[in-house]
Design a protein around this nucleic acid. Structure first.
Lengths: 340, 340
DNA sequence: ATGAAAGCGCTAACAT
DNA sequence: ATGTTAGCGCTTTCAT
């Protein structure tokens, strides 16, 4: 292509090719208005024919501005976080800002590392899942003077601001709906993940609401790893073998709930009469099952969207349009598996 | 925290706090060996107590090295690309390199934009899905002198190197397996996505192998948008209403295949006797269905892993351990829905 | 509307 | 083992 095989092109190359100063080239390329039409065209033409791509590293260093937003999430592989990202993207697409994603695998040490990495790029904002962080992570987040939005959860004190739902409340509400429907012998099935604080909070809220009605969970089952659908089926069989008189199963996520649902349909259980089921998340993916699983929408897209709006507003210097804590209200969907 | 609320800390601050030159601080922080134990500790201590986070922007500019690998994929929301990313991560985790992901939504113009954005950060390597790119994208990829690995597909000429499977071959093989099993009245169900070249190639290969046996697809159905599970169910009902004597349905992905499978079980079709089914991708997510859908593994994790290895080897200056084109062989899994 | 000079915060290369 | 100097490729600021 070019004669310079071993280095990338610089402003200077475009400057020489177009016979205009580097400064003016820079102005044209950043789309600033104060350049004559004639020079603008000359420069654009030269840049294009050379195949010049600006160096953001140098630009960022000089301008002290990095149009990156760090998004730190625990996982990529379940349905929930990709949808949060879609929400983030939907907003950032229309701005100069660009999301950069880091994954923590639910490990605080990894969160710490990822956060440090991200901060070392001096992003314009941080969106990070959860309110629970290691001391070191908290220290980093606090001492930074860029906007920080903690997402998904609002049961706790945010460092800067937070957008999410109350998982305790979500658990309570599901319990109340189950009790109202007349179910009394309730089992819980979830992940063996002490570090998934939001799942724990849902479980806590759930048990709390039950105990107000003097009901206790009759049995529970936890899993880790493996295909969620298969695990859901397997755990369901096991919990029912051990405690056959259960009349309701609350699953900590829709995927294992769907596995349970399918396995119960196969053995011809009558749902929701004989046994009721509910999951959590509202994953659209699962629409199309023979019966629609009762669930609660976690407002994932909305959370991503609002978080990105907060960052983008702050970066633009506008005053906040959201409160320090934005509490979204998850909608309960009874589906076909929670009798009314 | 610190007295300097409005600027982030620099090497200079650490240098002053520790009474050591900036250069030595830099050496310590980059973990280079040529520093005495005493100074090393002094510096580390100072950096930690100040809460110093290095500025990679400046470091990258000075060293002309950016430890970023751009990963450009069409979508985040289906199961396939997150798993590729997991493969990429599994390798890059053990290196200095860090993946940065860009999403194109299967749109060539967006790919062009994302690629330009990525290149402007001067990454150390590029992993990009597919072999089909706009002329401008190709020009950018060609004129770059960093390693470029095109992934998922090998039916075509790579710019630099490629890792993937032949989707034409995958389609052919599935067709052969179906024919061998004795099915003759075959329907196809897929996405209405002319820009998903890999799906098209599978379809082409599939039709080609059928026509060698003088068989033509009896009917087909395309969809776009919506929940894949639900769409699969719906399309299946429709194609069978229109062409009731179909004895096999080939789905362009496992998700719609699963939807079809569930809907056929519900109307008590005998699978695989009365009608056979197959999908594509081998999504682990679906293990746990009442019947295991026949499918073909797309080697997603492996593809990501090898692509990252190629980049990481090249960056390390080692000579290539993989060929220009690495053809992975997808395994056919007959499951329970393709009779033998 | 255009240009010249200075410097962003680091690191390479060369002292000592 | 440690320090000094000179940039990296841009943008800011100040001239013209």
């Amino acid at each position: 292509m070019s004669r310079f095989e071993n280095r990338t092109l610089t402003l200077r190359d475009v400057s020489e090719a177009s016979g205009v100063s580097e400064m003016t080239v820079s102005r044209v390329l950043r789309g600033r208005g104060d350049v004559s039409q004639a020079t603008r065209e000359k420069v654009l033409q030269a840049a294009k024919s050379l195949g010049y791509v600006p160096n953001k590293i140098a630009g960022a260093l000089a301008s002290q501005r990095v149009n990156l937003v760090a998004v730190i999430i625990p996982s990529m592989s379940n349905m929930v976080f990709p949808e949060v990202l879609t929400g983030v993207n939907s907003v950032l697409e229309n701005t100069e800002l660009q999301p950069v994603v880091g994954v923590t695998d639910y490990l605080p040490e990894k969160e710490e590392k990822v956060l440090y990495q991200m901060l070392s790029w001096r992003p314009s904002g941080i969106i990070i899942a959860g309110l629970e962080h290691s001391d070191a992570s908290k220290a980093m987040l606090k001492s930074t003077n860029i906007p920080v939005v903690e997402i998904m959860d609002i049961d706790g004190e945010p460092i800067d601001s937070a957008v999410g739902i109350s998982h305790q409340r979500a658990g309570r509400h599901m319990a109340q709906a189950i009790l109202e429907a007349g179910y009394r012998k309730i089992g819980f099935l979830g992940t063996k993940m002490p570090l998934d604080h939001r799942a724990s909070k849902r479980f806590d809220g759930f048990k709390e609401a039950l105990s107000k009605a003097d009901i206790k969970i009759l049995d529970h089952e936890f899993y880790s790893g493996g295909s969620a659908l298969a695990k859901g089926a397997q755990m369901t069989q096991e919990i029912l073998k051990r405690t056959p008189d259960l009349d309701f199963l609350y699953y900590s996520n829709d995927m294992i709930g769907a596995g349970g649902l399918l396995s119960l349909l196969e053995i011809k259980k009558s749902i929701p009469r004989e046994i009721g089921l509910a999951g959590f998340n509202g994953v659209e993916l699962l629409e199309g099952l023979p019966l629609k699983l009762a669930t609660m929408d976690a407002c994932r897209f909305e959370i991503g969207k609002i978080a990105a709006e907060i960052i983008s507003n702050r970066v633009a210097g506008k005053k906040d349009t959201y409160d320090r804590i934005t509490a979204l209200k998850p909608k309960l969907d009874l589906g076909d598996t929670l009798k009314t």
